[in-house]
């Protein structure tokens, strides 16, 4: 049983580390601020949750698991809020997105800010 949990945790940790790395790589490689948000999104959702699940598996049924679940829920709710706040702030000062077709950026479509 312990062996099964260890194998599962290894899988979750490797997958989590992979997604954290991929997300950050995206943040480095992608061409502009708006696209980098998507890269950071990978880290914040799948990478974080997989690593926290691996830790929960290792902790077993205890107070530690409850606290890890709380951290995971908290990040699940705050990370999209922070991302939206960032995107909204950048949009409000008129930061131009890279590569977006001009028809998406017509003044009529972006007036309210």
């Amino acid at each position: 049983m312990q062996l099964l949990i260890d194998i599962l945790s290894w899988g979750f940790i490797l997958a989590g580390v992979f997604f954290v790395f991929t997300g950050t790589l995206g943040m480095l490689r992608l061409p502009d601020f708006y696209t980098r948000l998507h890269g950071a999104g990978i880290t914040d959702t799948l990478g974080t949750e997989l690593l926290l699940i691996a830790m929960m598996l290792q902790a077993g049924w205890s107070l530690v698991t409850v606290k890890l679940a709380m951290i995971s829920l908290f990040i699940f709710f705050t990370s999209p809020t922070a991302t939206h706040a960032l995107a909204n702030a950048a949009n409000a000062v008129g930061l131009r997105p890279f590569g977006v077709p001009a028809k998406d950026l017509e003044p009529g479509k972006r007036e309210k800010r």
């Binding site: 708006y34 948000l37 990978i42 991302t83 939206h84 995107a87 909204n88 409000a92 309210k112 800010r113």
Partner: peptide, 8 residues
Amino acid sequence: TPGTVSVD
């Protein structure tokens, strides 16, 4: 959902 971000 990565790939889409609500901006405004």
